[in-house]
């Protein structure tokens, strides 16, 4: 199962990277959010999936799953949620102010 999740994470990285390298601002933001999802999946996969019971009070099992990776993922999701939201607002403002979402047209001078 870990292998499978890792492959999915790899696929997400690939698509994310492809989208980030494109010119449209919305595509870039979508690429970023796919990339972060890939990271979160990877974070879960490399630390092992479901090695024991849920780490909750009252669950009577001998082995508990390590809750820390999940806590890390939650934190990371919150942060990437804020970042994606910020970049969406930024992209929208750029579109409103400058009338384009094409990065090619945002260049400062031709030699840049």
């Amino acid at each position: 199962m870990e292998t499978f999740i890792t492959i999915i994470a790899g696929v997400l990285f690939t698509i994310g990277t492809y989208l980030i390298l494109s010119k449209g601002l919305v595509r870039i933001i979508l690429g970023i959010s796919l990339f972060t999802h890939g990271v979160h999946l990877l974070l879960m996969a490399v630390n092992g999936l479901k090695k024991g019971g849920a780490p909750l009070l009252g669950e009577a099992t001998d082995v508990y799953t390590d809750p820390l990776p999940q806590a890390l993922i939650l934190t990371s999701i919150v942060i990437s949620f804020a970042l994606t939201a910020f970049s969406l607002v930024l992209g929208y403002r750029t579109y409103v102010e400058l009338g384009t979402d094409d990065l090619e047209q945002l260049k400062g001078d031709p030699n840049e």
Binding site: A82, A85, F86, L88, V89, Y92, V96
Partner: peptide, 13 residues
């Protein structure tokens, strides 16, 4: 607060 601020800052336009 944050979620609504972000969404409204786009939505109010």
């Amino acid at each position: 607060g944050t979620t609504m601020t972000i969404i409204l800052s786009i939505g109010e336009d």
